[in-house]
Simulated scan of single mutants.
Amino acid sequence: MNKLKEYRKTRGITQKKLSIRCGISIVTLSKIETIKNYDVSKKTMIKIAKALDTTVQELFFSDEEEENKNE
């Protein structure tokens, strides 16, 4: 989930601040950012996307779709 980390950092938000906004632990947020196939619930994806002022699609899925189109 490198894109999540990029979005967070470009907005100047720390993991701690984002985890508080989303109501998830820093450990969970860190796992989402670093583990490629981490199983994130739909509810958590929505919370994170809202906190970063973007969409779930853009934050979690847009790169995968581009990769699939290029294959």
Score class of each variant (00 low, 15 high):
2 N>L: 12
3 K>T: 13
3 K>L: 12
3 K>A: 03
4 L>M: 05
4 L>E: 04
5 K>V: 01
5 K>T: 01
5 K>D: 01
5 K>F: 02
7 Y>Q: 03
8 R>S: 05
8 R>P: 06
9 K>R: 09
9 K>V: 03
10 T>S: 02
10 T>W: 01
11 R>K: 15
11 R>G: 05
11 R>Y: 09
12 G>R: 04
12 G>A: 05
12 G>C: 03
12 G>V: 02
13 I>H: 02
13 I>Y: 03
15 Q>T: 06
15 Q>I: 05
16 K>N: 05
16 K>R: 10
17 K>G: 00
18 L>D: 11
18 L>V: 12
18 L>H: 10
18 L>T: 13
19 S>N: 06
22 C>M: 04
22 C>E: 05
23 G>P: 03
23 G>I: 05
23 G>S: 03
24 I>F: 11
25 S>I: 01
25 S>P: 01
25 S>N: 01
25 S>Q: 00
26 I>H: 00
26 I>V: 10
26 I>W: 00
26 I>E: 13
26 I>C: 00
27 V>L: 08
28 T>Q: 13
28 T>N: 03
28 T>K: 12
28 T>E: 07
29 L>A: 00
31 K>P: 02
31 K>Y: 09
32 I>K: 04
32 I>P: 06
32 I>G: 03
33 E>P: 07
33 E>Q: 08
34 T>S: 14
34 T>P: 02
34 T>K: 13
35 I>R: 12
36 K>L: 05
36 K>E: 12
37 N>V: 02
38 Y>N: 09
38 Y>F: 15
39 D>N: 15
40 V>I: 15
40 V>H: 04
41 S>N: 08
41 S>W: 03
41 S>I: 02
42 K>G: 00
42 K>E: 00
43 K>T: 09
43 K>E: 15
43 K>D: 14
44 T>Q: 15
44 T>M: 13
44 T>I: 15
45 M>W: 10
46 I>W: 10
46 I>G: 01
46 I>K: 15
46 I>Y: 14
47 K>A: 13
47 K>M: 08
48 I>Q: 04
48 I>R: 03
48 I>D: 08
49 A>P: 13
49 A>S: 15
49 A>L: 12
50 K>R: 15
50 K>W: 07
50 K>N: 15
50 K>T: 09
51 A>L: 08
51 A>G: 12
52 L>W: 09
52 L>T: 08
52 L>H: 08
53 D>V: 02
54 T>W: 08
54 T>Q: 04
54 T>K: 04
54 T>P: 04
55 T>P: 12
56 V>W: 03
56 V>T: 14
58 E>W: 05
58 E>I: 12
58 E>V: 11
58 E>R: 13
59 L>G: 11
59 L>C: 09
59 L>D: 02
60 F>Q: 08
60 F>I: 09
61 F>D: 10
61 F>S: 03
61 F>V: 07
62 S>V: 13
62 S>A: 14
63 D>E: 14
63 D>G: 06
63 D>P: 07
63 D>H: 11
63 D>N: 14
64 E>W: 02
64 E>V: 03
64 E>S: 06
66 E>L: 15
66 E>Y: 10
67 E>Y: 14
67 E>N: 14
67 E>H: 14
67 E>M: 11
68 N>S: 10
68 N>F: 11
69 K>A: 10
70 N>E: 12
70 N>L: 10
71 E>M: 08
71 E>I: 07
